[in-house]
Simulated scan of single mutants.
Amino acid sequence: MARAFLHNGDLLILDEPTSNLDALNEGSILKSIRDYHQEKTIILVSHRQSTTAICDQVYQLKDRKLEMSS
């Protein structure tokens, strides 16, 4: 993830970036992602609601359909 931040691209795709982390490290990673997102598009794939809580828009896959979460 550090390499992705240093590369400074316009798009970042993260698949379960906080899996297997304790709550303290998860919070640190999510804060870094939140701070990094300015003027960038980040696609964050996660099963954890705590991870997706930092997202501006959340979509869920239900019955093979992509739905915007409320």
Score class of each variant (00 low, 15 high):
residue 23 A to K: 10
residue 18 T to C: 10
residue 41 T to N: 09
residue 12 L to Y: 06
residue 47 H to S: 14
residue 22 D to S: 06
residue 12 L to H: 05
residue 35 D to T: 05
residue 24 L to T: 14
residue 53 A to H: 02
residue 9 G to E: 12
residue 17 P to Y: 02
residue 44 L to C: 02
residue 31 K to L: 08
residue 63 D to M: 09
residue 70 S to E: 12
residue 10 D to N: 12
residue 58 V to G: 01
residue 51 T to K: 02
residue 44 L to S: 01
residue 38 Q to E: 12
residue 58 V to M: 00
residue 56 D to A: 03
residue 22 D to K: 02
residue 21 L to T: 05
residue 9 G to S: 15
residue 25 N to L: 08
residue 19 S to K: 11
residue 26 E to F: 05
residue 18 T to M: 05
residue 70 S to I: 07
residue 37 H to K: 14
residue 1 M to R: 08
residue 32 S to H: 01
residue 43 I to W: 08
residue 12 L to Q: 04
residue 66 L to D: 09
residue 52 T to A: 06
residue 9 G to K: 12
residue 47 H to F: 06
residue 50 S to Y: 01
residue 41 T to K: 08
residue 30 L to R: 01
residue 3 R to K: 15
residue 56 D to T: 06
residue 12 L to W: 04
residue 15 D to T: 07
residue 7 H to R: 14
residue 41 T to Y: 06
residue 26 E to L: 00
residue 38 Q to W: 02
residue 70 S to K: 13
residue 50 S to T: 07
residue 6 L to H: 09
residue 58 V to I: 15
residue 8 N to Q: 12
residue 28 S to I: 11
residue 33 I to F: 04
residue 35 D to W: 01
residue 33 I to R: 02
residue 69 S to N: 10
residue 31 K to R: 13
residue 54 I to T: 04
residue 39 E to I: 01
residue 69 S to K: 13
residue 12 L to V: 12
residue 32 S to N: 04
residue 64 R to D: 14
residue 67 E to K: 11
residue 16 E to D: 14
residue 27 G to Y: 00
residue 49 Q to G: 02
residue 62 K to W: 03
residue 40 K to R: 15
residue 52 T to E: 03
residue 61 L to C: 08
residue 65 K to C: 12
residue 38 Q to P: 04
residue 62 K to N: 09
residue 56 D to H: 13
residue 8 N to V: 00
residue 57 Q to E: 13
residue 15 D to Y: 08
residue 18 T to P: 02
residue 66 L to K: 09
residue 30 L to Q: 00
residue 20 N to C: 07
residue 35 D to S: 06
residue 2 A to E: 15
residue 68 M to R: 14
residue 42 I to H: 00
residue 44 L to N: 01
residue 6 L to E: 08
residue 25 N to F: 06
